[in-house]
Design a protein around this nucleic acid. Structure first.
Lengths: 218, 218
DNA sequence: TAGATTGTTAATCGATTAACAATC
DNA sequence: TAGATTGTTAATCGATTAACAATC
């Protein structure tokens, strides 16, 4: 049972990577429900994918199952968590303490995924200095100082478009590991080694309206 | 130039559909910048995709370009808008007036995509009855009444997980056309003809931590 | 007309599914 | 051991890219 995660020198396809978080969610649900084991066949029915795909996906990273038995839910959950970096305990700050920033602060999303929120930043005098639960809102001018001294890995950008590019550049210059970008500005810092994950929420709305339209045609 | 959008009896692949909103965004930017025409080659450089893919994608819906010239930006933007249903002027309500709901209300996202926000709903006595800009917050108990009488096409679910399933079921029973689901609950109402678009924001965070981890390995 | 660039067919590539031998 | 189910190879399917004739 002490299978290591494969040293994946070869590139994992982005199709696989995009599916991993969904496995993570389903496995946690199974774990919480007290399920001990699951076969690729059972999981495939729950998730509406093929059992083949599940086995192929998992085998990119290692042989986590056992012939004739299936997968131990707790073990598989742990492995997928490791693959996704949940055990790395990344530390994040939220830059932009508007409604979106506050919505993220208030949700259990970060905690559930091993990410610790350390602080909030904003440039509005009305907000700077306030506390939200355990989190303090700092002046955006303090970003450099704070990030250098507090071991921050990830910045969540929930500020207005207008400040996005400049702020992101400052963060990348600091060598921050990841930027989770909710502003609709496309960012690019591969040269600086900063990973950018863009969230285009509006694209999702457009997919919805497309699908409504195409459903109505029939 | 009066090319009709192809009557797409055959199914457009979801790979194509997912790319359409990105074309929409880039084309608006070009339009705002005053660019009159663009070739698939130029656009491909801007967007970091192949020119072939752009031409293939567009030709699923019609021949919007002109040999030797390229694409008229305004015309193409209009056509893609039609394909995505921007011209349909869908009407939406937001169910759940917490921070996430308020963040969506305050953003220009809906207006930019032809979706009109009509009202907010919540079940907290502190919020019901208040107004935010032009939008009124109604009691969630009024959902049925309001939706029947106000021509609502889309419900945006930004309420706590606990109420998600029940509320979504009520909306689907009313025959609402689309549910934009921000709760992490997987919903399924294909039988009732309601399109569900799930937003799993946490999955995006997991992709970020995965990518940070795999970038660090090198 | 010559040059440019589309629309579309054909070739390639990659991802998904099926099949089955390995093995618990 | 027999039954079950994985890990993995092979077959299929679909999506992307390349190529080029059509045409503005």
């Amino acid at each position: 049972m002490e299978e290591k995660i494969k040293n994946t020198n070869y590139r994992i396809s982005s199709a696989v990577i995009k599916r991993l978080p969904r496995y993570f969610r389903y496995l946690r649900e199974l774990l919480e429900a007290g399920t001990m084991r699951i076969s690729s066949g059972e999981l495939s029915k729950m998730m509406n994918v093929t059992a083949s795909q599940i086995r192929q996906d998992l085998n990119c990273f290692g042989g986590f199952g056992q012939q004739g038995y299936g997968y131990n839910v707790k073990y598989l959950y742990t492995k997928i968590s490791e693959i996704l970096g949940v055990d790395k305990e990344y530390r994040a700050v939220i830059v932009g303490a508007g409604h979106l920033g506050m919505a993220l602060v208030g949700s259990p999303m970060f905690a559930k995924r091993g990410v610790t929120l350390a602080a909030l930043f904003d440039n509005s005098p009305d907000l700077v200095g306030k506390d939200y639960g355990a989190l303090h809102i700092y002046d955006a001018a303090e970003l450099e100082n704070y990030i250098k001294n507090n071991n921050i890995d990830i910045a969540v950008l929930t500020l207005p478009r207008a400040y996005a590019k400049e702020t992101a550049q400052r963060l990348a210059n600091l060598g921050i590991k990841g930027i989770w970008n909710f502003t609709n500005v496309e960012l690019q810092f591969e040269d600086l080694g900063t990973v950018v994950q863009n969230v285009h929420i509006g694209d999702s709305l457009m997919q919805l309206t497309y699908r409504i339209g195409s459903a109505e045609e029939k």
